[in-house]
Nucleic acid binder design. Structure first.
Length: 515
RNA sequence: GGCCUCAUCGUCUAGCGGCUAGGACGCCAGGUUCUCAUCCUGGUAACAGGGGUUCGAUUCCCCUUGAGGCUACCA
């Protein structure tokens, strides 16, 4: 009964990937997966002023990184230097005419709006011909004056349709004279426009309150409002998933579909992401770009898991909260998406990230951590023998359960990478008498010396040390731990000794003893 | 201002007329072979307010309040 599900993610190339945008992409992708539909990427670059260099490539790279695979639309050209992708090479590719590093795949292209300008002109013309759109020659100054007057008179600011009165001759004259113009939608002001939102239910608007919005700008580019409708129809989009901010312009889009005689797609308006103070999530109150969180060392699994929970839950009495992308593809349901906005609260992201870090193998953790080590001074200044793969993996093994994000690697355990100073810390060694302290350190040295290099394993070290420690473990372990770390807080002395190795451990103990 | 939308612990949420209002994060306390972390156990904390409907409302309806969105030649 229903036609095939085809959904799209349609970002504008204005810079970074906003987390709210990313969530829209995620939900759209999951919806497609769950329903066996198609997911495609379209680029909405109709605002030349807001265009940011390389943002299309960033969007594509980010989608690929996150695993939100689309089968159709815009891709990075595999031949280009910046390509790091392995996209399906089957269907025929078309080089993008305006972006040398991009390529388009699919039967509904082009998928970049700036390459579809002729099409918008053609369809705008059709509306003019059937009387549901008209030329408008008002200047921005005209419009502003009009708006100010309306506001002063406590009227709702709306276009006053003065250009609707123009005769065909007048219009032709003006165009011939080279006057700038836009094309406006002629709203049907009778009655109501109603639609059923998949998330919000029935929503109704009084048509007389709708403005004659601009369809084609004077620079020949379409507005979002127009390009979106034309493309969604031409690309056979079945469901439109987008942010809540579009709820109130949807009736205008519906009239557009009707004016063309096209089927109206289903709409689902997603709740907004909020700042802690409940205003719309903004840059001013923290990081909003997915890239920022990647840089901070959050894993994609955690980001996806966190973001999907902001406005959706599995329901069915289940309390499951940790989901892989693959799982989500099975269980996601638009019906379980919330209506209310959700505060973007990082505490839970930290927790989720820690969960996913714990699941990593040491090898994986090592691979992912290298770039973060490379950003640390304490690491870059360290001796070569503490930068080896073997050594770093030991460090990471100990740190794994203490990490909230990867950018913290080594941060709290810098004593693994540099010699330590004892002065202050020594004084803080509990209330032990100097003699007892000496004795403890001696005992540690003896014990550790007794372990052969080839038996320098964590289990062994623990066994030996515990055996010697007896009842009052603290008396032995506390001084040992501080001697090895120079810190009040650290991993256990056994772990420290294991990572540092026999030679270095004994050296540090010796130093502590002699100071 | 007008129109639209939304409203359960601090946060994310379960609930779809009858529950001691459940879970997760955070926070607090205790435990787990020294500190930290992990892990385990326990605890703290919510139905915005007022009217209805009903034998009975967190749940349905209305109003108020609050929050958000739109009201651009931005999306």
């Amino acid at each position: 009964m229903d036609k095939k599900v085809r959904v799209r993610f349609a970002p504008s190339p204005t810079g970074y990937m906003h987390v709210g945008n990313f969530r829209t992409a995620l939900y759209t992708y999951l919806f497609a997966k769950k329903t066996g539909g198609e997911f495609l990427l379209r680029i909405e670059d109709t605002d030349k002023n807001r265009f940011v260099e390389n943002s299309i490539e960033n969007i594509i790279t980010l989608l690929e990184w996150s695993g939100l695979i689309y089968s159709e639309g815009v891709f990075v050209n595999p031949k280009s230097k910046i390509s790091n992708s392995k996209q399906n090479p089957n269907s025929e590719m078309t080089n993008s005419t305006s972006y040398p590093d991009l390529v388009e795949i699919g039967n509904f292209g082009p998928y970049i709006q700036s390459e579809r300008l002729d099409s918008y002109k053609e369809y705008a013309q059709k509306l003019i011909e059937n009387g549901t759109a008209y030329y408008c020659f008002c200047t921005e100054q005209d419009l502003e004056a009009m708006r100010n007057e309306q506001i002063a008179n406590k009227q709702a600011p709306m276009y006053n349709r003065s250009c609707l009165k123009l005769s065909t001759e007048e219009i032709q004259q003006k165009i011939a004279a080279g006057e700038k113009y836009v094309i406006r939608q002629k709203i049907n002001t009778e009655g109501f426009t109603k639609y059923t939102d998949l998330i919000r239910g029935e929503i109704e608007f009084k048509n007389e309150l709708l403005d004659d919005q601009i369809l084609m700008k004077s620079d020949g580019y379409p507005t979002y409002n127009f390009a979106n409708v034309v493309d969604d129809h031409l690309m056979s989009i079945s469901h439109v998933l987008r942010g809540e901010e579009y709820v109130s312009s949807t009736p205008k889009y519906i009239q557009l579909y009707q004016n063309f005689g096209w089927d109206v797609p289903e709409f689902a308006h997603l709740p907004l992401l909020l700042n802690p103070d409940k205003t719309k999530l903004s840059k001013r109150q923290g990081d909003v770009a997915v890239e920022d969180y990647i840089k901070k060392g959050y894993l994609k699994e955690a980001i996806i898991n966190f973001v999907v929970l902001l406005g959706w839950n599995i329901g069915d009495g289940s309390t499951q909260e940790v989901f892989s992308l693959a799982e989500l593809e099975q269980v996601f349901d638009l019906k379980r998406v919330h209506k209310a906005g959700a505060v973007f609260d990082l505490k839970k992201l930290d927790w989720l990230n820690a969960q996913y870090i714990k699941k990593l193998s040491v090898d994986e953790l090592y691979e992912k951590s290298l770039e973060f080590f490379a950003q640390k001074d304490f690491y870059n200044n360290a001796a070569p023998d503490v930068k080896t793969e073997t050594y770093l993996k030991k460090v990471l093994q100990i740190e794994q359960e203490r990490l909230n994000n990867l950018s913290e690697v080594g941060e709290n355990n810098q004593f693994f990478f540099a010699p330590i100073a004892y002065d202050k810390v020594m004084l803080n060694w509990k209330d032990m008498l100097p003699e007892a302290l000496q004795e403890s350190l001696q005992k540690s040295i003896e014990t550790l010396s007794g372990i052969a290099e080839e038996n320098w394993e964590l289990k062994n070290i623990e066994e030996k040390l515990f055996a010697v420690a007896g009842d009052k473990k603290g008396d032995l372990l506390w001084p040992l731990r501080v001697a090895l770390s120079g810190a009040q807080k650290s991993p256990s002395p056994m772990e420290l000794a294991w990572v540092l190795g026999k030679t270095e451990s004994l050296q540090r103990l010796q130093n502590a003893l002699e100071r």
